[in-house]
Structures are given as C-alpha cells and as structure tokens.
Design a protein around this nucleic acid. Structure first.
Lengths: 234, 234
DNA sequence: GGTATCGTTCTTGTCTGACCACTTTGTCGG
DNA sequence: CCGACAAAGTGGTCAGACAAGAACGATACC
C-alpha cells in the first residue's frame, strides 16, 4: 500500500505547506509570517529545519526575511518571483545559451510589437535618451548599460510585467558584455547602433509590424554571432 | 567610502561563492561537492549556515543533496533550473495569470512552428496517440492529461529544451482552469478537440505557418475564456 | 573463485540550546 | 512635544549531538 511513499524531508514538507498557504490565499502578499520559533512549533519541526525552508522560499523570491523585523511574503510580483530566472542565464553555457537567445528572438519581437501599439510619448522620450547614451559612450561598460536600459524600457512599454521579467532574465549583464566585446573586435558597433535606431523609429511610428521585424533582425544578429563563436562560451 | 556596504549574510555569501564556482567551471555538472562539514570549514562558516546555502541552491535546481551520499551539482539542464518556474504559475492569480497565458500565446505558436519544420514520423505517431486518447477519454481528468501530453510532445519536437521547460512551467497552473472550463461548458470539448486536430494536421503537413496559426488560435481561445472568467481566479 | 550478506564508516537530515546583531517599541527626561 | 536611551522581540549564526540512509569492504557461504 502506497509503496512509492517517497520519503520527503520535513523541510521539504514545510516548504510546500507555506507555498500552499500562499496559493490558497491564507497568506497574502506583503503579509508578515509568525516568528520562526512559532512557525516551527506550529508545523512541528525544529527551528533549524524551518529556517532552511524559509531560506529556500527566500531564494525563490516568495518570502523576504528582514533581520530583527520578521519574515514577510513578497509582493509576489513577476519581478520578485522571476529573479532567479537570471541564474539560468548566468550559469548556462554552450548550446543552452543559444537556446536562450533563440527564445529571446521569439519574445522580444513580440514585446516590441506590443510596445509599438501602446507606447506613450514620455516612454518614447526616455527610450531615445538611451540611444544618445549609446552613441556618446566610449567605454564598453557604458555602452552595455545603455543597451540594457534601451531594451528594458522598450519591453516595459509592452505592458506585460511577467514578459518583461522573463526577457530581463534572459540576458545578464555579464553575458551582454562578452558579446559586445566580441562585436567590437569585428567593428560592427555602428551596425548595431543602426539596428537600435530602426527599432526606435518603428516605435515612434507606432508600427507593430516594423517593430517586430526590427527587433527580430537585431536579436537574430546577436544569435548568429553567438552560433559562430559558441566555442568561447563552452 | 563604500558606504553602501550592504551587510550581506554569511549564508548569502556562501550561495554566491558556490554559484560562482559553477559559473567559472570550477564545479562541473554532475560533480560531487565536498562534504557539508568540509565546505563549511573551507568557506569559514558553520554547518547550519552552509546547509541553508545548499538548501537555497537546491531549491533553485542547481544542487541536489542525496541523503547519506553527498551533495552533487545537477546536470544544469534547463529542466533542472526551470523547475521553479512553475512556482510562478502556481501562486500567481488574477492579472498575472492573463500575462502568463499571453506569453504562452507568444511561445507556443513559435514552438509549434519550429516543430512542424523538424518533427519526425516517430514523434508524429506519438502525438497522434494523444489525439486518440483525448477522443476516447470519458473523464475530464483523462482528457486534461492527454491534452497536457499532446502539447508537451509537440513543444518537445521543436528541439529547444529550454523553450520546452518554460512552456511546461506556464502550463501547470492552467491545469485547473481547463478542468473548470470543461465542467462549465460541456460543448467546448469537441471544439477543443478540433483545434488539436488542426495542430496535428499542420505538423503532419510540415507546414510551419499553419502550425503557428493553429496553435495561436488554440491558446488564444483559452486566453479569451480566462479573461472573461478572471473573477474566479482572483 | 565467485557471490551474497553483514557490519563499519561516512554523509546528509534533524534537533537542541545558546548567543549575537538588528529592529521595534515604549519609557523617561528634557 | 520630542529626542535619547533602554528593553524586549526577532532573525542570523554557531556549536554539538544523534538519527537515517548510503557506500564500501570484510567475511562467510556456496
């Protein structure tokens, strides 16, 4: 009877109990949990094990522990829960990096298209400043920072916070730096800048089709470069 | 100087150190780590704190602890690292659920399109069995299970494991949504079955455009239904 | 000689209790 | 009224101990 009785650790059980409490609405976003000592007593385990459970949920972006002040449920916003998504991009290498960029080539054109249909003049102005920052940058770090901000603000204008969080996680800062360094050697920075300008123009024209195409070309270029230089990322 | 000196916990530092070791290639996929006692001694902290660090990385799918046998680095495959992605879908509600489905409406057509271009006859045969299972199912649960298997195998045929893992995470929470939908409106089952058949036909015809369109229609239907019944998911 | 079994030893899992670091709160004195 | 200080509460860290499971080797049996 019930042979598969997968022996589960008390810590794992506590993790799922707390997760369930949140899923059921028993614990709401921003709410404070009982103290570690009380919680461990209630769920019938030691404080050490309870702390491990809390640490695991903290790593997942579900809980947030404030030293001396208590443990709280995060806002459960996509940006909270998908923070760990960036870890995938950080520790992935080789073929998986190509897969990640392939996904970005699917998502970013869609997001840029959505942005073209609903971007405000104010957002457009901010995006334009990043273009100027890129043109004025001399250090590769400045360029990367402006590039990152450009894409982030474009995607944010699409109005889907979850989508923005995922795309954000797909390309870490260090990864971009490595790519741009490689691109610089080949002297195609001006080409990349032109691609950014095309994206901006499509947004300014409120043209979703053109925006999608421009974004696809841009990400596709990076993807192709990565495929050729995949050996450096093994 | 360095006023922002964000006091970081020893546990958090250990987490980042281990993560860095993996990112730098010092620790490789599948490799065994030193024992908890040795690790805590090397990094200069107590075993309790080290255990919390390991637990956090375990929750992220980076490490795997085997009782009595040691701690190992996972294969670092997308399916390992993106397991926590499903948590987002599990505990999200309301507007975020719509956002998640919106993302699936972007990804799944793209994946289905890719699958149409490279699906093998063997894969196609397996996918077809799920169609028959759906047609033969009498219980809602059977239908949903076959539906999940259908989509999973279609996406898997796209050949991008990372993409498959993400879409898989997006689908977990819609499990219940589909059940409810079937319970409320019994007539839609045949409609949904027809949508699946359209996807299959496009795959069999190796027609990426048709596959993309069929998948978009299918996911779009679910999305529309969710928007109308969003009140039930708050 | 080969193999199965048992026991030792190593490693993770859990518990307990203590103390430290930080936050919050309330009280006291100006 | 308010600022400073003291006290209580809470998470962070540490140390040591024992339980539970796994791996390995020795031993006994066939």
């Amino acid at each position: 009877m019930d042979q598969k009785a997968a022996k589960i650790s008390v810590t794992q059980r506590a993790i799922e109990q707390i997760k369930a409490m949140i899923a059921e609405g028993e614990l709401r976003a921003g709410q404070r949990l009982p103290t570690e000592r009380d919680l461990s007593a209630d769920l019938g385990l030691s404080r050490s094990s309870m702390r491990e459970a809390i640490r695991a949920l903290t790593a997942m972006g579900v809980l947030e522990a404030r030293h001396g002040a208590g443990v709280y449920v995060t806002q459960l916003a996509p940006s909270d829960l998908l923070e760990t998504f960036g870890v995938v991009a950080e520790i992935s290498r080789g073929a998986t990096l190509v897969e990640l960029l392939q996904i970005r080539r699917i998502l970013e054109p869609a997001a840029t298209s959505m942005a073209a249909a609903r971007v405000t003049d104010a957002q457009l102005a901010v995006i334009h400043t990043h273009l100027e920052e890129m043109a004025a940058s001399e250090q590769i770090e400045e360029f990367v920072a402006a590039d990152l901000a450009f894409h982030r603000d474009v995607v944010a204008a699409a109005g889907n916070a979850t989508l923005a969080a995922i795309i954000d996680g797909l390309s870490t800062r260090t990864f971009r730096a490595r790519v741009w360094r490689g691109q610089k050697e080949k002297g195609v920075l001006s080409q990349m800048h032109l691609e950014h300008v095309r994206i901006y123009r499509a947004l300014a024209a409120r043209d979703p089709e053109a925006a999608s195409a421009a974004a696809a070309v841009h990400v596709g270029e990076v993807e192709n470069w990565l495929r050729e230089n995949i050996a450096d990322f093994e």
